[in-house]
Amino acid sequence: MAKIGVVLILLIVIVAVFAPFLAPHDPTAQDLDVSQQPPVGFGSTSTEEVPVQENGSVVIEDGNIVTEERTVTENTSWSHALGTDGNGRDVLSRVIYGARTSMIVGIAGTLLAAVFGVVVGLTAGYYGGRVEDTLMRASDIMLAFPSLVLAIALVGVWGTAGIKIPDPLVVSGLSETIRSALGLAVGMPETITVPGTVIIVVALVNWVWFARVARGEALSLRGQEYVKAARAVGANNSYIIRKHVFPNAITPIMVLATIQVAAIILLESALSFLGFSGTNLSWGFDISQGRQFQSTSWWIATMPGLAIVLTVIGLNLVGDWLRDALDPDIGGEGGV
């Protein structure tokens, strides 16, 4: 099972990184002529009479052109394999680009939360006493906020600033070379929008899980002989934390981080679904767009959702596997 998870994650990461090579269209390009076009295989069908052809010419029998009935699938094309959205944008390309946002927010948010949470947690667990009490009370308070509500409140206050950074694969011209070699349309978006506020907010909402796990580890390591020994020979505390406590706490933190990437991806998609996101290239945003077409064009909301589910399943499988293999005792589930 873990193998499936690893394959899924690798797949998503590759898709996210190489999105400008892989997406069949510019995900932001609108083409109102083909809006709401269904995915391949789901087109509406009709039957029509077509002349039977033999050796390139029609067959005439009794003075009439011989025809046969044929089922014709209308309005789908391999060019838009997963269909198009209400503005005629290619759903597949948007799903591919959406992977970038999810990965950026998932990884950057987790890193930020982990750094903050681990520093606070290790310090509290190592020193104990007041510091620890304060942390534990603070984490109780954090837990009393539903993370999604707190997140939308924060984004509501701060606004949804997105930072545009140039996409190296496009700016370098690499994408153009490769795409024209593959026969794909050129002219992909030149910037990646990083939803900066969202990253900070998801980290603020989730750091407390890291703090709790790190504190627990530090607490159990504090009494260990080698830590006592290091202290006895006069090593200073921050040195001991860095050299002895942190390396031993790394395992459960890694496991937690895997699960947290999944939780943060879910949180990000919920925020974008609710319209609190710094970018329009996001699975959650596309689902909210698709909802407006739920009675006519089911695929617009369905496809990005499937992408979320597969990504999160992959992360959960790997997280479970790590947890079983390394057996740390941690909590910190999260979902939307």
Partner: peptide, 9 residues
């Protein structure tokens, strides 16, 4: 692993 807003839709 399923976001509930998507499941709802």
């Amino acid at each position: 692993s399923t976001p509930n807003f998507w499941l709802g839709i």
